[in-house]
Write a protein that binds this DNA or RNA. Structure first.
Lengths: 241, 241
DNA sequence: GTGACTCAGGCTGTATACAGGTTGCATCAC
DNA sequence: GTGATGCAACCTGTATACAGCCTGAGTCAC
């Protein structure tokens, strides 16, 4: 593995785990020493993380760990809904590959299994992976590299991704009902794409993202569950320091 | 100005003007010599251009000038329509700053003036700048940095931008009718945002982007007008080498 | 006590040297 | 003539040296 990629992955981990605090300046020499690489690959890694959004370029040069206002995450999730709606609409209008749809249906079954009460902790973990895969397949079904790239950029922020709040749901009381609704959305969007119901497919994915918005609000008022959100430490909450 | 920024701008120009051919490999030493800089800033510039999409990373390392299939541009324009529709909807739902809307209305008047027959060549040039500004203000009206950033990324490709095909229209016969329709969209979306008609605002911007899609098809079958599209040389046409 | 100024440390931006890997051409065997 | 092989040139990834700039602490004047 290249030093650049290694630095990128390890830095991302340090940031998302909260080991590097939001606002903290990341000087190239200090990061280089910490990661045991030279400045050149560290700089390249910082540029890529800036593109992802985890790190912000300082006007006078250099980078600092980024933080996110609740409103920004709200907007990012809603934007994901619009983009996934766009993808679902394209898939319905243009027709999706049969293999992709078949695999989406297989995932539906496995997600049902993982979330059959009583749900174990492993069940939630499985669901997170299956859910992420389902959303990837939806993008694939649209058959557009341009759209896939754009969605990939929005989803790069972990709390804007389709699975960002699922693990936190595990400790939230209303979690099971939310999962039932989410699964219904999944099922319905596959059906809509199959039947070439473009408007329905689009509306479903928009509404689907709203579940994440609701989870965001719930999680932000529950310290314990917030800890389960990857990158949750980067969120600036309203009325907090 | 930094060497990196200078290299980025000059490389972009070389690519969009066609001086560097699509598919051509851009080795760091050769580019560095051509631009009179060292490899370090050239590499940084290439990374940024790769993010923009003008340049593509080669799996085994290095970069090459990118090219675009007609379908990709089609998709990029439709995606822009969806994103601008999203912005217009947000502006209508949340309310846009009065100053922004006032300036949009002022631009409407100036665009009308620039396109009053007989339209001079300068008229078209003015219209391009005014139109670009109008679309920027629309994004501003949404009041979301997340959305603004995302739209900025789609619009980075010149032929996906709102003004990508306007200059080419100047030599196309149906140009004036298209401009009339485009202006009607502009006027209507301002009205929709003012009246908080979110669904209407969104639908209008989607339809607005379709004008660019139509122009794309017209331009692709007219060599003369294609030359007026910035970056047109990067477009791979169906059934062409 | 407060504000401006100076200076030192550190940082970024840039250039360049070096090692490992890849590519493509030429040559050789069949 | 064709395919495999070896070599040479080149290129990327990385480390590091150097210059200019910024920042922040400490000091001095008022």
């Amino acid at each position: 593995m290249s030093q650049t990629l290694s630095a990128q992955l390890r830095l991302r981990d340090l940031i998302l785990s909260g080991e590097l605090q939001p606002g903290e300046r990341l000087s190239e020499p200090s990061v280089a020493e910490r990661l045991g690489a030279s400045r050149t690959p560290v700089r390249a890694a910082l540029v890529r993380l800036a593109e992802e959004g985890l790190v912000k370029a300082i006007p006078s040069g250099g980078f600092a760990v980024n933080s996110f206002a609740e409103e920004e995450i709200h907007d990012a999730i809603e934007l994901r809904g619009t983009l996934e709606g766009h993808a679902a609409r394209l898939a319905a209008e243009r027709g999706a590959p049969g293999g992709t749809l078949a695999e989406m249906r297989r995932l539906l079954v496995r997600m049902d299994e993982a979330t059959t009460p009583p749900i174990s902790e492993d069940g939630f973990t499985d669901y997170v992976a299956l859910n992420a895969h389902f959303h990837e397949l939806l993008v694939e079904a649209a058959g557009s590299a341009v759209v896939a790239r754009q969605i990939g950029r929005v989803v790069a922020l972990p709390f804007a991704s389709p699975s960002g709040f699922v693990l936190a749901q595990a400790v939230l009381p209303a979690s099971q009902r939310v999962l039932v609704v989410a699964q219904e959305h999944h099922r319905a969007v596959v059906e809509a794409i199959e039947h070439r119901e473009a408007a329905r497919a689009e509306a479903l994915m928009r509404e689907h993202a709203r579940l994440a918005r609701r989870n965001l609000e719930l999680v932000l008022h529950d310290q314990d569950s917030l800890r389960l959100v990857r990158g949750g430490v980067l969120i600036r909450r309203r009325g907090w320091a």
